[in-house]
Nucleic acid binder design. Structure first.
Lengths: 140, 140
DNA sequence: CACATATAGATGCATTTGCATCTATATTGC
DNA sequence: GCAATATAGATGCAAATGCATCTATATGTG
């Protein structure tokens, strides 16, 4: 197997694994009446940062697109889960903070999410062969 | 590290790797004036199946949602890249075939796609630690 | 200070998604 | 053969995405 073939196989495996796991986790959350995964990521990041976070920081950390995140933050604020304050030291920007309601929701999501991760990743690891090949492959 | 923590770390790594690689590959294709990745997958699957394929088969193989694939197939037909024929043995269904134009386009996409896979997966393998942990973890 | 450029975030628009539902044909059990 | 159920695929609708663009503030240079 050439280096390229190894990488290609890993790319295919990466996609399949991701689609399957992601879809199943999203469905588990939804079946439990919970919001989507990206909501969780934002809430958790903010709960870990009591001083708040700037949108552009979260975009980088969580790999969101700028416009997508802008609207996501708006939705979360509309639901009362976060607050967007003007940044005092940078008039262009905002600082996001989680609300008590946001914390409460995150706490409710976690057990469901945790259980789904555990279950789906266990299945996923059963199809690991292609990725293993990549990961064990010596890199030039 | 507990089993769960290992799986959680792998889930996070899986997501990050997937978003980064997927986004970069899509951009490489787009910058080269090529269509989106899902088009390629369909064209390639059909090129490998001269007798054609039923939509429901492709949905399973490529992990598409039913409605999403239905519309994707329509777009591809509108572009002249595939043909949807009625299945003679099953009045409910279709058989999809690739056209010469479809084959030509797939052939044009491949070098760009190949190059992008090679480059992005090489980078990706540099951040493999969390996934490695999962994959090397003995499974109960 | 004034002007050019860079950065943070919002928004309009076209496209795509996901879900639920709909139609048509197949299959199963009586 | 006929009713009940299952399966293939299409479609309406609300929501989400990506892209380009817009506004406002910051920063850097003369």
């Amino acid at each position: 197997m050439t280096d390229f073939e190894t990488r290609e196989a890993a790319w295919i495996a990466l996609n399949q694994m991701h689609v399957r796991v992601h879809r199943n986790i999203e469905r588990a959350l939804q079946d439990a009446g919970m919001p989507r995964l990206d909501w969780y990521d934002v809430l958790w990041a903010l709960e870990c940062a009591p001083e708040g976070l700037r949108p552009y920081q979260m975009q980088e950390a969580l790999l969101f697109e700028q416009s997508g995140f802008s609207r996501l933050a708006m939705r979360l604020e509309n639901e009362g889960l976060i607050i967007r304050r003007k940044d005092k030291t940078d008039g262009r920007g905002l600082v996001l903070h989680i609300t008590d309601q946001g914390k409460a929701l995150r706490g409710k999501i976690w057990p469901v999410y945790r259980q789904a991760i555990d279950q789906e990743m266990r299945h996923a690891s059963e199809q690991k062969d292609c990725l293993t090949a990549l990961l064990n492959h010596p890199r030039k």
